[in-house]
């Protein structure tokens, strides 16, 4: 075998071994645990905080208002849908108050006329002409509309 080829083979073997060593050292520990990905990332994603805690949590303190809501047309709607996420409020209720929407635009997101809204699914109103001077909640109790 010619000397230059011998030298190249030695060099090649060194480079490949170095690469394999690096590959071994640099691959994350949990890689390949379930598939071609870092198994630990599943737990990391699962551990992210929950922000919308759900009406079942709200009822613990606000039982009367939840009961009122359950009797009305908005019974299926989660409290946080209008009031915003409560994950801070449930820990520090005095400090972190929730949102109390009262604008006509807010109600309009569901209740303004739009031909695409299924008629049976939601009551619709001509927002521009239906008592434009008043807030919706002056006449309609959002918890029992």
């Amino acid at each position: 075998m010619p000397s230059q080829l011998k030298r190249l083979l030695v060099l090649g073997v060194i480079i490949i071994s170095l690469f394999l060593l690096l590959k071994h050292l640099a691959t994350p520990v949990s890689f390949g645990q379930y598939g071609h990905y870092r198994g630990n990332s599943l737990n990391e994603i699962a551990a992210l905080p929950v922000k919308y805690v759900g009406s079942k949590t709200c009822v613990k303190c606000h039982d009367s208002i939840v009961a009122l809501k359950l009797e009305g047309l908005h019974s299926d709607i989660q409290c946080e849908n209008c009031h915003g996420p409560a994950y801070l409020h449930i820990k520090t209720p005095k400090k972190d108050k929730l949102f109390r929407p009262d604008s006509r635009e807010f109600c309009a997101k569901c209740h303004s006329f739009n031909k695409a809204r299924p008629e049976k699914a939601v009551t619709q109103q001509d927002i521009k002409n239906h008592h434009p001077e008043k807030k919706c909640i002056t006449c309609h109790n959002p918890h029992q509309p």
Binding site: P2, S3, Q4, L5, R7, L8, L11
Partner: peptide, 18 residues
């Protein structure tokens, strides 16, 4: 040169071939 200094006609022929 990677430490290979052989430039005999035979070695050069190998270069050519490889």
């Amino acid at each position: 040169t990677l430490g290979v200094y052989d430039i005999s006609p035979e070695a050069v022929k190998w270069d050519e071939k490889l």
